[in-house]
Design a protein around this nucleic acid. Sequence first.
DNA 1: GTCTATAGTATGATAGAC
DNA 2: GTCTATCATACTATAGAC
Lengths: 228, 228
Amino acid sequence: MSEATDTKERILDTAERLFAERGLGQTSLRQITSQAEVNLAAVNYHFGSKEGLIKAVLARRLEPLNRERIRRLDRLERSGDLTLEGLIEAFIGPPLELSRDGAGGGRFVRLMGRTYTEHANFLHDHMRQANEGLVSRFKPAFREVLPELPKGELYWRLHFMVGVMSYVMAGNDMMQVLAASRGANPDDPQEIIRRMVPFLAGGLQAPLPPELQQALEEGAAEAALGSD
Amino acid sequence: MSEATDTKERILDTAERLFAERGLGQTSLRQITSQAEVNLAAVNYHFGSKEGLIKAVLARRLEPLNRERIRRLDRLERSGDLTLEGLIEAFIGPPLELSRDGAGGGRFVRLMGRTYTEHANFLHDHMRQANEGLVSRFKPAFREVLPELPKGELYWRLHFMVGVMSYVMAGNDMMQVLAASRGANPDDPQEIIRRMVPFLAGGLQAPLPPELQQALEEGAAEAALGSD
DNA sequence: GTCTATAGTATGATAGAC
DNA sequence: GTCTATCATACTATAGAC
């Protein structure tokens, strides 16, 4: 079992790296097993299929990651100092900070960023399911710090926030070049977080678009607020 | 030549659709040629390789698209009413509106959104080159409407804007579900633009993060402003 | 310019010995 | 749990007839 675990871990580590570097579809089991120095058949033995391996790679890091995000939210709420900026940081901080931990966290973060735009139905389902608890915990908190924002509008904006986050996490060359040319260390997540938080806070609490504002004032509030 | 053009166009249309639906790497030339009802060898004859086909698919729509964005910027500047909101709309409007034109524009937009996170070096190079003129035209305009923002900070924020845009363009299920559940027509780009503009405007003109603000006031302005 | 045929290679998955 | 060997299938690309 200790030997087996070792093989399993080696497969997970290598798969994570290659998936992040080349994408899921472009990475073959052969590339993984040869670089992990395990037998080709080991993948199917331990994970059943390539799809099973992908899910295992994601789950291994996503679960502790989301636990950490919720832990930070808990702490914010207990401290009685729940601010928009703090909330944003609790949400985007852990994934971006993970990119700093020596052991492949950065690779995983890039992989995670990619899953948002990758084309695979089983992936979307898996991610949605894996993030269910996270979403149901953060949504009310955002509502609390943005009480003036209609519910429907808030959801749009939270998605825009996820858009920024996943783009940054995907970490394509442009982002690296940008950071480097600005004298910033592109591998320092704090640098990026420091810049993202004001941008996101500004966006989330921006005034409503004129048309919507007007609709609200004219009493179409019910429709606009919705009833999730 | 008319027959050839026909075949070429049919390949381009089908490739665009399949690339957007399944991703570049997951789409085979066989799938394309069989659905386009052309011979397998036609792709290599007309485009040289799969890579050549991908570039052709992108270039066909990207060039007129970026011309339109620049045309709108020209008009804004001539009108003497260059606002941040107008500038944002000139930049994000055309790609998002393209998703409404009946003839496959929506597919292309999703494909374009995906290219930002897709893993292929030739793609990044091609997109960077294709967007060069666009960027050099829009950057000074953004500087003009956001004069108080240090240059380095502006570039970060423009990238965040691209992040939101590409996430929305990638148009994954979540976005669709969100729009539908909010009573919005997920296929109406105006609906999305109306929501994105205030968010992006709010983000772009948000106050500087405290640390940076302080650095500026302490005279470290040179370093922070840079000299790009 | 379009076709068939095929070379040459890679893939995911499994059977069966150890 | 690990291995080799292999099946069945897919892929990109090209050669050569028409």
